[in-house]
Design a protein around this nucleic acid. Sequence first.
DNA 1: TATGTCCCCC
DNA 2: CCTGTTGGGGACATAA
Length: 877
Amino acid sequence: MASKKLVLIDGNSIAYRAFFALPLLNNDKGVHTNAIYGFTMILMRILEEEQPTHMLVAFDAGKTTFRHKTYSEYKGGRQKTPPELSEQFPFIHELLDVYKIPRYQLENYEADDIIGTLSKHAEKDGFDVKIISGDKDLTQLASEHVTISITKKGITEVDSYTPEFVKEKYGLTPDQIIDMKGLMGDSSDNIPGVQGIGEKTAIKLLKEYGTVENVLESLDQLKGKLKERLETHRDDAIMSKELATINRDTPITISLDDILYSGYNPQEVLPVFRELGFKTLIDKFDTGSETDEPEEIEDLPFTAAEEITDEMLVDDSIFVVEVWNENYHRSDIAGFAIINENGRFYLPYGLAMDSDPFRKWAEDEHMRKTVFDAKRSIVAMKWKGIELAGVDFDVLLASYILDASQTVEDVAGIAKMKGITGAKTDESVYSKGAKRKLPEDEILADHLVRKGEALSKLSKILEKELRENDQYELYHDLEMPLAIILGKMEAIGVKVDVNKLKEMGADLGQQLQALENKIHGLAGESFNINSPKQLGVILFEKLGLPPVKKTKTGYSTSADVLEKLADRHEIVEQILLYRQLGKLQSTYIEGLLKVVHEDTHKVHTRFNQALTQTGRLSSTDPNLQNIPIRLEEGRKIREAFVPSKEGWVIFAADYSQIELRVLAHIAQDKNLMEAFRNDMDVHTKTAMDVFHVEMDEVTSNMRRQAKAVNFGIVYGISDYGLSQSLGITRKEAAEFISRYLESFDGVKEYMDDIVRDAKQKGYVSTLLQRRRYLPEITSRNFNLRSFAERTAMNTPIQGSAADIIKKAMIDMARELEEQELQSNLLLQVHDELIFEAPPEEIEILKKLVPQVMEHAVELDVPLKVDYAYGDSWYDAK
DNA sequence: TATGTCCCCC
DNA sequence: CCTGTTGGGGACATAA
């Protein structure tokens, strides 16, 4: 027979712990939830780990207890329970109820006493007892069968107090804990103890005499101040011991039979989680329990259109455009679904595309449509000859704005987060990888209609959340219009000089062949230079070079390692060169040629607008945001990016030091603002301040180091990161940073404030109200916490810069349209915009682009934009 | 197909 | 005392 296990939880104490350990999070109803959340986390862990057969959560009742009769000042001077915590107790009670965990409180007694009494009964009946609390007082109950788990600083770590543990920690038995309290008192409960006796003295006395009473009877063996103190406070000691003693014979009205625990039903718990907005816990639940049996999906009636009718084509509809390929450029479309006040409809692709009314409706901007991934839908339709308009709400973008950390694959992914059932994942319907295929028409139709149904519910929920977070403007006035602009940029594409690329490729191929021969010759055998494993064997075993660094799979052969070995063997330099050219060949020549469209010689990148945690864009297939520039050999790749029309130019404009300007503004740092107002070289200025020298004394090395520090500030790197980039010790790097912060005290203040703010609110914000949640900022794990702290400092800077250039793109697109210019915006690379322009518009752009970009927002420092243009991207420098 | 290593950009 | 590396995309090798 399985043994009986009783878990007793000190409800008040755990709620307090959770409250103070976690940031003061709000849910979407404005209720603070941190204590509820922490409490639930602890509860879930206990249920998992202990598998109790019996369970009870005890709470304190009322303000006065029997202890107040003994000592009216008991628990006096205590801070009142913060209202932010009090308001959470009803929810904790509700949660316990749905978990079917009994809770109990008893007039005149504290939770401790209830726990003491029940554990006594249970012990007698042969139970194993586990007590959970944040209060060390309970450790007096430890025995062979009673273990007390005390939460440490956070909520995840606990100390388990067994009699052995108590012995080890204090050198006392558990029942001597109350004697210890009697002597030393307890400031948190306002138990006086004997004045002048602390933990050390108390333990010493008890090791010698055993109990408070024995100590007091043996006073004549003591002397001096100690004896004097014990004599004067004799009564205090006795009373304090009494106060600290848990009453194990309270008149409880429940028995062990009443607190049998037979588990809970996740279906009853989930709605409460949803109500509270516990996304992560919902996920844990859905995947972590056996309730994952395919939920009973209700039938969803819809009409599979055999002809397109007017009732399908009305204002305010959900519009599902099922773009088949991941890369939506020139992709097939599997079909459409429309949901509106008239019903749910599946529209087969061919039927819809042959319908004029459908085309008209799709292109009518007054026919408002809610979609998932507006840009994807618009661009895919554009390739099919339809200019989709009237896109009014994008569930993907809204979800990204609300929380970028939730990676979203499809409609079902978002639906699940928000507790909406009925939608199926794309993967479950289509399979993935090589097996991915279109299902039969009925299944496809059902899938698309279900997506639409989920979108309909989601759009309402997400819009409400955006407004509550004060993020609706960001969504509606920034990201949504930007999606349209990005779609145009992608569809226009960038012209590539294919022949130029091929020439460069042939040339590189020859150089690589020669290098390969040379390297193999130097190594004395032929091997795959691209294989770190094989290369490691050659360098560190055959040639006997010293391995500088290891990776988890073997020797590191990274560039910084090789650079250290460069003067020890001729082969190293050749390998570095081989790597550099090999990268250009495979990624930029061959990689680019693969994605150039044969007929137009254009590449059509996709900007991912809903991916990065900072608000930046990213770019794929091809990635046009990482085309080489630093080294001349690589930079030449840019010669292959040319205007799409004869005689036009590439016009590139970039913000100068936008992140540091944003930092100056956000931090309101006088020194940094002054530097930018005077248009100083900010790295030189930093060097002057960090090294305490005059402008003409700044050496190029000082400027280089100052630049690295600025880089570190902007990108949120650690002292370790800075030490790596400068090749100095971590200590020296830390010294640089602290000298920087002394000179820029506004920045220092900002850094301190933003971390504190993030801990309190759980997130940081950018200029335009973009958010990044940082739950790990309160982690006890140094790495996680440090990373979150640096993120808190960095994201408002990088994210605000991203906000600004996005705004500039919208303003710029409007200007191009209003002035009826032919120039096209082609690319955005984080702090620069790249256009193609007819020669007659160059003079206009030279004025217009900097004007628009510099005034996208008004900061307390000027924004500065540089520009250049030429026959290719290379020449726009 | 997934993971690790390396390297390009801002 | 130590811990450990901004945000991305992509190519290639290798193990599974």
